[in-house]
Design a protein around this nucleic acid. Sequence first.
DNA 1: CGCTAGCTTGATCTCACTCAATAGCAGTGG
DNA 2: CCACTGCTATTGAGTGAGATCAAGCTAGCG
Lengths: 251, 251
Amino acid sequence: MITRLLLHNRLNGDITAAERAALEASVAEVIEIPARQVAVRQGVPVDVSTLLLEGMMTRHMEDPSGRRHLVGVHVPGDFVDLHAYALRKLDHNIGTLTPVKVAMFPHGSLARLQAGLPELARKLWFLTLIDAAMHRQWAFRLSSLTAIGRIAHFLCEMNARMVAIGQSDGRKFTLPMTQADLGEACSLTSIHVNRVIRELREEGLCTLRSSLVEIQDLSALVALGQFQPDYLYFNDDVAQVALGRVRNRYD
Amino acid sequence: MITRLLLHNRLNGDITAAERAALEASVAEVIEIPARQVAVRQGVPVDVSTLLLEGMMTRHMEDPSGRRHLVGVHVPGDFVDLHAYALRKLDHNIGTLTPVKVAMFPHGSLARLQAGLPELARKLWFLTLIDAAMHRQWAFRLSSLTAIGRIAHFLCEMNARMVAIGQSDGRKFTLPMTQADLGEACSLTSIHVNRVIRELREEGLCTLRSSLVEIQDLSALVALGQFQPDYLYFNDDVAQVALGRVRNRYD
DNA sequence: CGCTAGCTTGATCTCACTCAATAGCAGTGG
DNA sequence: CCACTGCTATTGAGTGAGATCAAGCTAGCG
């Protein structure tokens, strides 16, 4: 089912059966894209938005020197470029980290949904605003945390989002990013990311080895990254697991 | 007229007479707030959104050490916390920089507008997505520019936005921010902001004196800040003025 | 087997921070 | 009228987190 993870474990956003059916009926096609491709290029008009089903995607910008900067990472259940529906063209690129499977929603269909189901429209709007909240938090992370705090915060965010979609038990999840990718997300050189990761390992907070993140001390990681998951607008039970206050019920 | 500057000079967003009338009818009240107040506090549920009519406002977060970080600045015509309509409570504070006049829109009224006027709803959605685009650009600015570039980029953005609402001729506008405020916006200490401003002055790019910004060499400032106004989704004539390619028609 | 992408470590450099001190200016009250 | 307070702006000296530059190392894969 295409919409299984959409709005999953979110506040304000429980999706009704009718809304789900309408969404399912609006999918034009499901396609696969290989890893490390640019799926949507900045400035090019688009008339379709993509819901991520499997794999991970990024939003990124390039500066004049060609260096990439991530401004967002997407996991399954994210409506990656829903904002293109209202914006028509994007101010950044969208790419794949891994091979992905995505569902395509033509903007004509979204317009019909918006006119016919105002409450669904409000929930979709809500989804794009969560992205905005994550952007704010990323800016905050860059402006107020040191290198190790940024990495810790990023790992906490990804862990929380993976918990919400059932892909982390709260301590362990796969993160298919290289150290260079992490650097692009946290604005650090891959060299410095490496040193920070070593420090996290030596301090017994967490280990990153070949796409696997294992968190030994989530409370300490949360404190180091000053992580407060409110901005993700998850249900309280997800937030509690993400903060390390309770073990995941699936343990 | 309350909605005079709303969506002014924006792409995709021309507002119809009927939409304008519906919006005007949705205003519950117009109120004034003194300078340097917190208007909406993080985490407190809100049921009203505010359209800024006069003055300037900020979005900001506080880190555990009490330091403030701006994640947005608002000018007249901005629907400052429209996103609260879908989010219900905010993940950041909203405050005033100057004394302001704002129009209050109850969320009940917005819900009726959203159900009755889907095209207007899409335009309001669009507005909140511009804020998201600015957040992305702020993150990008923090991650890819040095101190002088950040200040230059910020000044270019504010100049562009003031041009769009007729409060800058493209070279001169009032910016009621102290050097400490600029530091909070660009993640710099006020001391370093001071040095950067001196450098901008000595290089003949622009001068900042007691809330007045005068740009001597806009092209150079644009280059220094790597400023590309696409993300603001302004009409092309505004963008051209903001880039210093043409003089403002009102000169 | 060699190639390449990703990871690891060391040495040096630099941008912006911190700490410290001073000046200017508006408002306030004696 | 001046003294006092507080905020903003300015300048100098020393420091440090993270960048850059330079090498090796490791593992997967043709």
